[in-house]
Design a protein around this nucleic acid. Structure first.
Lengths: 144, 144
DNA sequence: TTAAATTAAATTGCGCACAATTTAATTATT
DNA sequence: AATAATTAAATTGTGCGCAATTTAATTTAA
């Protein structure tokens, strides 16, 4: 019987998760290219489609991203015309992010993406649910 | 009963995977800082500890990375003294990557990391196995 | 055996992701 | 009211990650 080698790639937990995340994001790419946004930008847009006018901090809390990532990302979304960034009158430190009309309309174009991705992944609902539940369970543990 | 919203963040599959990968890599960081490598560099070192002298292509196949990522990464590992890159005599297009003594010795310093990470994650063996199996299952499906 | 096609790595360019620092505004203290 | 502490975003710097192109070596075909 072979020894257990904790430093072998095949025995790593994080590696397959890291790979699968990259691979799935890669599958998104052709669909997202069509609407001219990246995966990270898509996440930001989803957050704003759910609730418009959030601050940079609030977006970051939902996506686990900091201002070092979000500031330039939001500027790119702004230069594409999907959002505008406005400093709050009551507190000039705070920047709120608002959807433009174009940014709002993008949701209609994006709404086919989840279905297309489901076809792309071609997983059973059980597999999907199992994965989501397991990952969520771990995530909750890590972040407690 | 609420409608199902395919564009809501909470209904995304990839997002929690992407977050969990980032979070776990973040937990590795303090341990990897001690031996002065990044997570990606750690993956490359694990590959080389398993089999020394692989080509850039072979490392890339194992880690799902291309030369655009690996060439600069390997140069950084080389400048730290952990590997050396040598073009093959028989085929000058091919670059082989070899561990230096320092690179080989690093394995002894790294071997406590998996255990420390397991403590950090504080997951039951069942959780770990469940996650790994589910992720591997999906990964196999995606890459067929 | 020269020309064409292929291959491996390197390069270029862009967009994250994050640590650390800076800037500017606000709030809390003295 | 002036100072100190805190806060939000922006900035700086480093290192991926990947698409697209380039360079150089090798192989295949004409």
């Amino acid at each position: 019987m072979e020894n257990y080698h904790p430093l072998k790639l095949e025995n790593q937990l994080c590696f397959p998760i890291y790979v699968i995340a990259k691979e799935i994001i890669g599958l998104y790419r052709p669909f997202l290219d069509e609407i001219d946004i990246t995966y990270s930008q898509y996440l930001v847009m989803m957050v704003l489609w759910e609730k418009d006018g959030l601050t940079v901090n609030q977006v970051g809390e939902k996506l686990y991203l900091d201002s070092g990532t979000l500031t330039p990302l939001l500027k790119r979304l702004e230069s594409k015309g999907f959002v505008i960034r406005k400093r709050k009158k009551e507190d000039e430190r705070v920047v709120q992010v608002f959807l433009t009309d174009q940014g709002g309309n993008l949701q209609q174009k994006a709404c086919e993406i989840p279905l297309k991705m489901q076809e792309e992944l071609n997983l059973t609902n059980e597999d999907l649910l199992e994965l989501k539940e397991t990952v969520q369970k771990i995530l909750n543990k890590i972040q407690k």
